[in-house]
Amino acid sequence: MTWRGSLARLLLISYIQILINLRSYATIFNILSIAALDLGVYALIMSNMIGSKYEGIIVPGITIFSVITSSFAVARNIAFSRILPTGFLKYMLSYPMPRIYIAVGGIICSAFQSLIFIPIVSAIYIALYDRKIEIILLSIPALITSIVFSSLFIAIGLHINNIISYNRIMVYIVPAMSIISTLYYPIEVIAKAFPEWVVMIAAYNPLSLSAEIARSMAGLLSHTMIYDYSIYHIYALESLAILSSSIAIASKRLRTIY
């Protein structure tokens, strides 16, 4: 297969997955409305309470969390279509292409869906806070987060046979990870309250790195005392490690799934 043929097949399978996922309009609407409410109500009131600087903390945090929620929904659609009688995964498995393309197509689909959030988040931010935000620069970490986490969720979903167990990840593990991160508060405040090892867990949590890079790139905050420019290297390493291992695990599972 030539590289053009491979690319055409990959784009085709991504396109099919995008179309199928866009049919879950209730889920997309729910994720968008939660993000809008978080930004328009929670972030505004908390900024009113804590001080205007807090919006620079909370807006990228909410954006990253929304992107992760969206990636989770896309991964669930892909991974659990295998247990439905009309599941589209069965059709995709019959396509004449390597099965790794299904996993990569799902990741591209998730990245596409996360792009829907960026203009909405930006519009709400500009309307409510009357400030400029570097939309394109905020999109980059959001896209990377979507790619990394959708690959992780697809790999996990393909290894779980029960959708209830999978949903528990979203109900317990992801919120737990988001609490012990810098999505909702700066690392300096965590450092005031907890011992060094807890601060290190919070600081190098992938969600914290995504949020911190989003803040930094969107021009909302400068680097803080714990993070310096090495954060980009750590972020790149962590993202690459999660992405490559997740794609490898998902592809292996897809090869043996039927």
Binding site: P175, I179, I180, Y184, Y185, V189, I190
Partner: peptide, 23 residues
């Protein structure tokens, strides 16, 4: 136990850190 642990985390971490920021 899962729900209680989650509540514990929300109160012990989230609420505690926010309490250091609010007036």
């Amino acid at each position: 136990p899962l729900r209680w642990s989650m509540l514990g985390l929300q109160i012990g971490f989230f609420a505690y850190v926010l309490s250091l920021m609010v007036p």
